[in-house]
Write a protein that binds this DNA or RNA. Structure first.
Lengths: 187, 187, 187, 187
DNA sequence: CATGAATGAGGCTTCATTCAT
DNA sequence: CATGAATGAAGCCTCATTCAT
């Protein structure tokens, strides 16, 4: 197994800390300490803490979308493939003790000028939205308009389920959201 | 008009800063500078920054629930009073430039030991949930169980609409959530 | 039993805190909180924290010399009444968990301009020294010069025993000092 | 002459301030101002003010024991080498205007949780005690037990002479202690 | 004589970043 | 390409004291 590069080690460490402890709660010193990288080496690869966060969010996007896809394919719900999303939420969020959405979390309490992070969050949510739209269109049951309209409603249920389960530290919002999704799909 | 007390001035200033700039982005020094209060005077009334945030959240709870109630009564939707919530979201969030939910925002990136703030957030969301349950029960169309089940689904749509409109800086998630709510209610 | 006056309550509370926790470690706020006295009331009776310390040391002088006297009379050592001092050290210091001498402790880490406290300490040690001289003279075994000379040596043993037992949190220095005193007296 | 490192400058400045003004009377700001070091630079080398004090006490231990040894060897009293200690006390304490013992002083008024400093004080006094025991054993006049017993008594005289000369701002306690030591040795 | 609110100065510590090697 | 020392600004909080009632 290949030794990880400085850049990789920093991203790996920072990703875990940013996600589980929060962006503001994670200091540069903690990142370099836990990744075993010298401070100036780190700054050779990342201009700023914000840039590390951008890399974290990009990596997380690949990972998160991949796992989502895998779960949805595996479940392959007959009455609406998109319902697999809610199964994924359960699998994911119970494992991380309902730590919520990395993108939602990072955007809430950010210095005003951290626009690069903001952009990443918007980008991710747009990609996720498009992905849902596509999965709805694949059903061949809806017009393109209907597919997008229904997809947006499902998307909102997903976002609400994530944040509410984070606050309540409980899975009921996810189950409730899934029931609502079934209602919307079978109307 | 009576001169505001130190406590009031601190809460007022801090509330605005905490909500619009974020808890971590707001320093004690900024609060005392903008409220024109001496540091030690402030600490006579609040043991810690966390305690100021608790006062902020308590005040915001009164204000927010009040405005919500007022709006819902004013709209008085025939086919489901609860739909007025979404009108409130539009009114509120367009006014604050889609700054999102004060409770969602503060919980996302919080020092691990700030349990008093966490408690306030959970408290608020529980109260809001109960409020929705009650408004559903008043309709006299559902069993108690159905009312709560439907109410929870509406709640999740609301939470999702708030966070998504914050990210997108746009009202479409609120409108989409309202359409979904109508679907769920008229099924 | 008569209700204690403000002044008395402050002195009583402050005395315990100054002695057991230290002068610098004890804040004005702690004193007023534990004595149940309003801050401005306290400042009506004492111009400053230093003045409270002066009152504390004066009260402690009366109390400490009294107990010392009582113990020495009670023991009434045949071969040197002064040896009772060491019995007193044992009784006193084991009871206060070897917290050391209130006068020694307060003088070590004091703002440069706290001369009133300094004066109290010097005063107490001078009184104590005179007291020892007198007790030696009462023996009618020594010339006045010898009595003072021997008394000073005993005094130094006492001071050393107090500070060393405080550091070691153990009574051995007191016992050792007593043995040394016996040697000096029976030479 | 080599430029002093940050760490060295901090220790040097802090040592002088801690010893002559007291631990509580010396602020971090004063240390950095007088040493000409940036605050954050200082905290790169010392985790806390307490840690600076530990370094101060460790350095002082080396210095103090060294000078003591040197003086005792130089004097080389025929009738008890240990008597050189009292010559050292005179030399040292007159030079520092009877500022007393750095270890005694720092322990008297210390925040309850500063255990690392406490440990340093106990360590120093234990080392000093052992040193005295050894010097007594080298005399080849006493059994091991006698040497330690006599050594402890001398130790107590030393401690008492230091604190009393500090309070009285006068050398008489040291001279008196020396006379007592002679008595004990020539009994 | 009693009160609690108000204060300026300072307490110790941590932040993200840059510099010299 | 790697390093650890150095930094200014800012972080939250507490001090002994005085003021207005």
């Amino acid at each position: 197994m290949r030794k990880l590069s400085v850049k990789e080690r920093v991203i790996e460490t920072a990703s875990s800390l940013f996600y589980f402890n929060g962006y503001n709660q994670t200091g540069i010193n903690q990142i370099i300490a836990e990744s075993g990288v010298a401070k100036a080496s780190m700054y050779q690869h990342f201009r700023s803490k914000e840039d590390i966060a951008v890399a974290y969010l990009q990596g997380r996007h690949i990972m998160w979308m991949g796992k989502l896809n895998e779960c949805v394919e595996r479940k392959n719900h007959k009455n609406g493939k998109v319902l697999g999303c809610f199964d994924y939420l359960i699998e994911w969020l119970t494992e991380v003790d309902f730590r919520g959405c990395g993108w939602q979390n990072i955007i809430s309490d950010l210095p005003k000028d951290h626009t690069k992070i903001r952009d990443q969050v918007v980008l991710h949510k747009n990609e996720f939205r498009k992905w849902i739209h596509n999965i709805m269109k694949e059903e061949n049951k809806y017009t393109e308009k209907q597919a997008e309209k229904l997809g947006d409603e499902i998307l909102i249920l997903i976002e609400g389920a994530i944040i509410l389960s984070q606050i309540q530290k409980n899975e009921w919002p996810i189950k409730s959201a899934k029931r609502a999704a079934v209602s919307l799909l079978t109307k």
